[in-house]
């Protein structure tokens, strides 16, 4: 089998495991209102998921804890957080963070 075909099949496999978690809850849980306790529990999920992905990305960039001044991600996070807090917009924090990283890499 050619590598391209293996890659295509891998990607189809990735799709097959990605679709059910996205679609099944919509089919099953849109039929009637959720129990209030479950609804409240779910209301915390979005911020918790995002933050759980963010912390390791910032603080363990190479797979090891890097609470150090030479971890540029920590510095770039500051303008990104300020922009996110002030604007509640998606693009500006991304821009602020990426420009900071680029400038720091030029300077260091």
């Amino acid at each position: 089998m050619s590598q391209n075909l293996i890659d295509s099949l891998t990607i189809v496999g990735m799709m097959l495991v990605t679709v059910p978690p996205r679609v099944l809850p919509l089919w099953l849980l849109s039929q009637k209102p959720l129990p209030p306790l479950l609804a409240r529990w779910l209301s915390y999920v979005p911020v918790a998921v995002l933050s759980a992905m963010l912390f390791p990305a910032l603080l363990m960039p190479e797979g090891r804890l890097a609470l150090r001044a030479d971890n540029l991600y920590l510095w770039a996070a500051i303008p990104a957080i300020l922009a996110a807090w002030k604007t509640r917009n998606l693009f500006l924090p991304v821009l602020a963070g990426v420009i900071t990283i680029a400038l720091l890499r030029l300077a260091v």
């Binding site: 992905m53 996070a77 693009f91 924090p93 991304v94 963070g97 990426v98 990283i101």
Partner: peptide, 22 residues
């Protein structure tokens, strides 16, 4: 591409999305 800082895009997006949700 490292000088462009694209490796930070994902993290910056997570930060933005957290604040959009809060």
């Amino acid at each position: 591409l490292r000088p462009l800082g694209l490796d930070f895009v994902l993290s910056a997006m997570f930060i933005a999305l957290i604040f959009m949700q809060l």
